[in-house]
Design a protein around this nucleic acid. Sequence first.
RNA 1: GCGGGUGUGUUGAAAUUGGUAGACAAGCCAGACUUAGGAUCUGGUGCCUCACGGCGUAUGGGUUCGAGUCCCUUCACCCGCACCA
Length: 910
Amino acid sequence: MDYDFKKIEAKWQAKWAAEKTYKAAEDPSKPKYYVLDMFPYPSGAGLHVGHPLGYIASDIYSRYKRLKGFEVLHPMGYDAFGLPAEQYAIQTGQHPEKTTTENVARYRSQLDRIGFSYDWDRSFRTCDPSYYKWTQWAFIKMFKCWYDPAMDKARPINELIAKFETEGYDDVTPEAWAAASEQERSDILMRYRIAYQGETSVNWCEGLGTVLANDEVKDGLSVRGGFPVEQRKMKQWQLRVSAYAGRLLDSLDSLDWSDSLKEMQRNWIGKSEGTEMVFDTVCGDRHLPITIFTTRADTVFGVTFMVLAPESELVDQLTTPEQKAAVEAYVKESRKKTERERIAETKTVTGVFTGSYGINPLTGEKIPIWVSQYVLAGYGTGAIMAVPAHDSRDYAFAKKFNLPIIPLIEGADVSEQSFDAKEGKMINSGFLNGMDVKEAIEAAKDYVEAHGLGRRKTNYRLRDAVFSRQRYWGEPFPIYYKDGIPTPLPESELPLELPEISSFKSQNGEAPLERALGWTYKGYPLETSTMPGFAGSSAYYLRYMDPHNDSELVSADADRYWRSVDLYVGGTEHATGHLIYSRFWNKFLFDLGYVCEDEPFRKLVNQGMIQGRSNFVYRIVGTNKFVSLGLKDKYETTEIHVDVNIVYNDKLDIEAFRKWRPEYADAEFELENGEYICGWAIEKMSKSMYNVVNPDLICDSYGADTLRLYEMFLGPVEQSKPWDTKGIDGVNRFLKKFWRLFWDREKWLVTDAAPRPEELKALHRLIGKEQEDIENFSYNTTISAFMIAVGELTDLGCTSRTVLEPLVVLISPFAPHMAEELWEALGHKESVTRAGFPVYDESLTVENSVKYPVSFNGKTRFMVDMPANASPAEVEAHVRALEQTAKYVGDGSILKVIVVPGRIVNIVVK
RNA sequence: GCGGGUGUGUUGAAAUUGGUAGACAAGCCAGACUUAGGAUCUGGUGCCUCACGGCGUAUGGGUUCGAGUCCCUUCACCCGCACCA
């Protein structure tokens, strides 16, 4: 029987679906393992060969864990709300629900062909009302909670209200609270709620007609669509992610994530420990204390001016009448600029003097106060003390505006540039003189605190997440405005479903839902923004644990069994978005006791990106004649992308090329050795470069098992690499070879013969290797080991069932269809999934010749291979060399020298 | 600028973690077989040299009996952050 992959794969895929082979159920008798893929956004283009890379890796791991006796939860769903579907809807007038449904169906059929072991009964889309009910539910919980810094966790807002009523809290006294109107109380509480509505400077994207979160903007352009983004003050829903900054940072250490990803999150959270210091200022005859933040309290003696952010409220108050016109012009100018323009201008120094002066709290000196864009309103206090000698930005500013520069560190030459390093001895610094910089920082902090000039302060860069979008295709907020006061819907009203509307486009910042008829609750208007893309993906991993539960996000039983994701596989692009929001969301639910784990993703593996490998043909200018790669330099040619699907090993299929496009129907060719060789380049995989390889086509011509094996054989999972169909024949050949261990045409080869030692050795070496490799995600080397083992067993003519049966189990994570077929042929009724991983017996693999120092029984043994025809003199030379080496091992005394003539030299030392 | 990472044949990559560098594949070359194929099988293939032999893991140095692996220098590339005080 030949290996008919089409028949076999269809057969087993149908069987797995019918028998629900991969159904996961809480089974207290077994340890659990939760393997999750980052679910895809179902775009119209379908999957290309790069998408399944991570899915295959995690599927292999899932199957391996099942064999190892774990109850494995391995689900899949769709992140279906979001911009592209809506943009597409605007262009075509089709409802996003319709295109989403179509795209999901396409994704599903593509995924099914690859033979994943998902429990599809747990699948959902984030745009299903039964799912987004729980997104809305969590939002209401966040609305009804505040972050209590004393307990360092989220608590019900009622506890805060109780504080207001009794002893007061922050600047809210019981009297003030009692006197406040409903509206005022709502405004006060908004300053504390985890989900709150607030005026803030947001990233407004005119091209998309909506606001965006920081991680959705890159280089001043929207990540989706690449439209320019500008800063605008707007009232928006926000999530108080910043309250969790410290915890998000601290618990990173406990996670099994790559260092680079953790580092990215650390940078994004951006903890910086410094000092908040109060500077008195003189504006005319008024005094106005302003607070600044610095990490270099040691440099206060070198402060020669101060700078305010243009957006700072202090600017108006500190501007003198003489400077008013100039300052206003500057502020207006910088406000007009988009984020992108401001980034582009970071090298040009601009600024304007306010006319006011500050007083250096340590020296009592008068220093001018300026306004400049290089100070950001959103970080620290929006005001800084400038130390030009030891900060390059302050230095550039001082040089431009001729402000004094006082060096504070011995030997630092600040005539050409600032000295930013935190090292050296302090000078010109009063009581700090002579101290080392690091010492001085601490001493200065102590001094400032002791003299009531300020206090130690930890700042974070992490901002609250802007949570509303002026768009249609997202979760509606479960909020209505009762006499203008934002009020959550009762939980019994959830889900609040998206209304039908006629046009999906937002206009002039007006959200599409504002045009929805009857978008009210009990006669009150409902919130018309919708939630952003990351809302639905923030807690989806919890829902897979208990996807059909209509009364809870996840039941306590399911949560306690599955706990958190043990292995999460996905791309790095979510480092500062989804992976921060999910952690925040989970910690919030943890604070309230809805989940039992503080962190959602224990171990994270980032799969690399698959790039495309484009092919080119070369057309002689002005003709319809194409020359092969090696001859193109003889002519003036144009390089043209050609569809990689009609090129095999860089050789063009000329017939297919003629049919590809009508204009090439009568193309002529100049060949090399009868073949047309194409040029190639590594580029992003995209339609326009004709380098997209569809996994369906690979499944058609090679089969899913070959695709799975090849994607893993390509290299380490974490690495980015170009797709090159060239090498696929190698793994395909291997699978055929594997099959031929069992079947020779119609003849079944497996016998009950006793296994020979060499056969067992080959098998057990493989078991050991596979176990180790899969745990480390080194699938490529496991496949190599397979190729070697199968080669050995073929050469040995192995037919023993004792050897071949475990071999089928070993291949099953990689090539499940073939494994099932062979497993059945071996007489098993149950799926190979339940076979159990073969037990590794190391003693069977022990080498009978050792080539490196090996210690055992307190002795160390050296061996070295000798060429078969080595002369006595050569043997002697080897012995001498080994004796040299042996001196440095053990106590150096040589016990035995064994020379196997023509084979090895063997020295045993004590 | 700051942070993280990577540099090994023609190509994808291995290397028992300090112990025969290039496993396993791809490509190429030669051969076998033939229902002439993008099939199967065999052999060869780091570089220099007719050879003996020598040289080889980006660069230069160091530690070590022994370095792709550890330490320092320089260079190149990739990724992230970026006026964060």
